[in-house]
Computed example of a mutant assay.
Amino acid sequence: MGARFHGVSRHGRTVDLNLTEIRRYPEASVAEVDPPHAARVLLAGTGARDVRLEAGDILKENNPAT
């Protein structure tokens, strides 16, 4: 967790999101999800209301390399 996603919404607004939770099942939070599995994620931050994700959308994190 703690992954960050940054970009611009389709309305031109800045989007800076943090991954705060991953739910593999309704009652089970996990730290990561391996392909081909799916999960529900909670993203919070600036511009979160401008982002509309649909099933199958792919997010790429922009954490700096360490």
Results as ranks from 00 to 15, higher is better:
Met1Gln: 04
Gly2Asn: 15
Ala3Met: 09
Ala3Gln: 07
Ala3Asp: 09
Ala3His: 05
Ala3Lys: 00
Arg4Glu: 01
Arg4Ile: 01
Arg4Ala: 05
His6Leu: 04
His6Met: 12
His6Ser: 02
His6Asn: 05
His6Asp: 05
His6Ala: 06
Gly7Tyr: 00
Ser9Asp: 11
Arg10Met: 06
Arg10His: 14
His11Lys: 09
Gly12Asp: 06
Gly12Ser: 08
Gly12Cys: 12
Arg13Trp: 11
Arg13Tyr: 01
Thr14Gly: 04
Thr14Cys: 06
Thr14Asn: 00
Val15Glu: 08
Val15His: 02
Val15Pro: 03
Asp16Met: 03
Leu17Tyr: 03
Leu17Gly: 06
Asn18Arg: 01
Asn18Pro: 07
Asn18Val: 09
Asn18Phe: 00
Glu21Cys: 15
Ile22Ala: 13
Arg23Gln: 13
Arg23Cys: 09
Arg24Asn: 11
Arg24Pro: 08
Arg24Val: 11
Arg24Thr: 10
Tyr25Gln: 14
Tyr25Pro: 15
Tyr25Leu: 15
Tyr25Glu: 12
Pro26Trp: 03
Pro26Ile: 13
Glu27Ile: 11
Val30Trp: 11
Ala31His: 06
Ala31Leu: 12
Glu32Ala: 15
Glu32Gly: 10
Val33Ile: 15
Asp34Lys: 04
Pro36His: 07
Pro36Ala: 10
Pro36Ser: 13
His37Pro: 02
His37Lys: 07
His37Asn: 14
Ala38Asp: 08
Ala39Ser: 12
Ala39Asp: 13
Arg40Gly: 04
Arg40Pro: 13
Val41Leu: 12
Val41Phe: 13
Leu42Arg: 07
Leu43Ala: 14
Leu43Phe: 07
Leu43Gly: 13
Ala44Ser: 06
Ala44Phe: 04
Gly45His: 04
Gly45Pro: 00
Gly45Arg: 00
Gly45Leu: 05
Gly45Ala: 04
Thr46His: 06
Gly47Pro: 03
Ala48Ser: 05
Arg49Ser: 14
Asp50Cys: 00
Asp50Thr: 02
Asp50Phe: 03
Val51Asp: 01
Val51Pro: 09
Arg52His: 07
Arg52Cys: 09
Glu54Phe: 01
Glu54Ser: 06
Gly56Cys: 04
Gly56Phe: 06
Gly56Gln: 11
Asp57Thr: 08
Asp57Ala: 11
Asp57Trp: 10
Asp57Tyr: 06
Ile58His: 01
Ile58Ala: 12
Ile58Met: 13
Ile58Gly: 03
Leu59Thr: 08
Leu59Tyr: 04
Lys60Ala: 04
Lys60Gly: 13
Glu61His: 11
Asn62Leu: 10
Asn63Cys: 14
Asn63Phe: 12
Asn63Ile: 10
Pro64His: 14
Pro64Ser: 05
Thr66Pro: 14
